[in-house]
Amino acid sequence: MDKIFYILAALTLIAAFMVVISRHPIRSVLFLVATFFLISAQYILLNAQFLALVNIIVYAGAIMVLFLFVIMFLNLSRDLERFASWMPIAAAGISVGGIGLLLLASYRGAQISTDTVGNYDSGLVEQIGEVLYRDYLFPMEVCSVLFLVAMIGIVLLNRKERELPAKLPLP
């Protein structure tokens, strides 16, 4: 049964990798949606059902639709993008490899405790709600303010500039 995890993990990584290497933006988006689905599945495995569904609703249902929207709107599919030339790719490869090595090194050095606490309900909506509204009420309010600000910002960003009259009326 624990094979599920490894299968899902492999699929997740493949999907994520496909996001990176797909030359077609729409395919990238769809692979990303798949990635999110797989990650949600991981959440369900971890008994974090609430977060799994929130992940789907927020990322797959809202954020990715926005991406899809923008890509379709800008009609970017016309020109299939060429990747960066070899220099940036080499730089990127080196830096990513470096960070990977570092992560590996720190992972070797880290003491990851293997003992688990038997609270299976920590991912349930009641538990999360309690913690959220008891300990993290203020950050949540701040989040709502953040959304308000983001909303206003977007409206302002995309507001059409009021056009000036071509000629000033003569007095």
């Binding site: 729409i26 609430f50 569904l53 609703i57 797959a60 249902g61 639709v65 899809l68 929207f69 909506v125």
Partner: peptide
């Protein structure tokens, strides 16, 4: 019997958009 059944409903319904968007595009 998901204990977050309504959320599931939502998630899946919101995914329906993809079918339309992908097909239409």
């Amino acid at each position: 019997d998901l204990n977050v059944g309504i959320l599931y409903l939502f998630g899946v319904v919101s995914l329906g958009v993809y079918g339309i968007l992908v097909g239409g595009w």
